[in-house]
């Protein structure tokens, strides 16, 4: 599929989503917001995984870091200021990505995977095993941040519809920003590094610093997703940094089709719809199908990775091509 077709598809989807609060129940509006948040998170990982060739298995660290930043910045029983806490939270994620990236980006292949995992787990246990921000139970953000400019409040984060639209706006900004970055001289260098890093170096590109900057951008965007998640649910816990989440987002990217930006969004959507659907499976006889949803999810992922080398987006593209070919044929 061309990127233009992708963009049109996405524009239609975004417009459709924008209409949901007018007819959908609260549960579904919140579900779609969560879906968009995971879409942002998955896009940020795609910048590393699909475009730079950096298989980060610790991406949740940056998602969790900004969420924890908001939790720590929020005074008990009072609201933090959105306009200050948001940039601070993103800056914390970006800075963390800079520090971790400085060490991990010089490693390659399997070592990169292990080292990113190790750093993320260090952070996970920092919050899990100490009393910082509620320890392993996590912490509630009792009062959502207030987005006041003087006396004017453009949106209210206690209102789930406002949260939904805020998430939607960030989703669009992140998508457009990443598309612009990928088309820029910087983006072209990343794609070259993924294809053949040694060749890029011999062409005169100092690849380390490009990879590091990509790592920081991806970390900052993961931070956007983490911050939005913490205001939506009002709770922050160590699992937001855990390897389960890092693994899940990686699955979403691969499932949807890495290196496409749109694919990971589809992957995130399919993942979350499946999770929702499978958990709702009925009891058949003495077997509770819904309780064992992870078994069905696992089977699906195994099948998808065996049968769809280019992800769901790749499947869609090849189906479209087949239809196009059949149309092109003269009538028999």
């Amino acid at each position: 599929m061309t990127s233009r077709a992708n963009a049109i598809l996405l524009a239609v989807a975004v417009l459709g989503l924008a209409a949901t609060p007018f007819f959908a129940e609260k549960f579904y509006v919140q579900f779609f917001a969560k879906l968009l948040i995971m879409g942002i998170f998955a896009m940020s990982l795609d910048l590393l995984l699909g475009y730079t060739g950096l298989v980060s298995f610790g991406h949740a660290a940056f998602y969790g870091a900004s969420a924890y930043t908001l939790a720590i910045l929020t005074p008990q029983y009072q609201a933090a200021n959105f306009w200050t806490s948001f940039p601070i939270a993103i800056a914390v994620s970006a800075t963390l990505a800079l520090v971790i990236g400085f060490f991990v980006v010089r490693t390659h292949g399997i070592y990169f995977i292990m080292v990113t995992l190790a750093f993320a787990q260090m952070l996970f246990f920092l919050f899990h095993d100490t009393k910082i921000a509620g320890g392993n139970d996590g912490i509630y953000i009792d009062v959502r941040p207030v987005a006041k400019i003087g006396d004017w409040q453009p949106f209210n984060l206690d209102n789930f519809v406002h949260v939904f639209y805020l998430v939607l706006v960030f989703f669009v900004i992140v998508y457009v920003l990443l598309r612009v970055i990928l088309a820029s001289p910087f983006g072209r260098v990343l794609v070259g590094i993924k294809a053949n890093e040694a060749r890029m170096r011999s062409l005169g590109f100092p690849t380390f610093r490009y990879k590091l900057v990509a790592f920081v951008i991806a970390g900052a965007i993961a931070g956007v997703a983490g911050y939005l998640s913490s205001i939506q649910f009002g709770v922050v816990n160590p699992e937001m940094m855990g390897w389960h989440l890092s693994g899940a987002v990686m699955m979403m990217v691969i499932l949807g089709g890495m290196g496409t930006l749109t694919g990971p969004i589809i992957g995130a959507a399919v993942w979350m719809l499946l999770e929702l659907g499978l958990q709702g499976l009925p009891k058949v006889g003495s077997v509770d199908l819904g309780k064992h949803w992870q078994l069905w999810m696992g089977s699906f992922i195994v099948l998808a990775s065996l049968l769809l080398p280019n992800g769901l987006l790749g499947l869609g593209a090849s189906l479209l091509r087949r239809i196009g070919k059949q149309r092109g044929k003269p009538d028999a």
Partner: peptide, 21 residues
């Protein structure tokens, strides 16, 4: 094009389309 782009002082440019260089 990528090879030629390496002769620029830096490719740390994020917002301008590369095809316009």
């Amino acid at each position: 094009r990528l090879a030629a782009q390496s002769r620029r002082k830096t490719s740390m440019q994020f917002f301008r389309p590369a095809v316009n260089l």
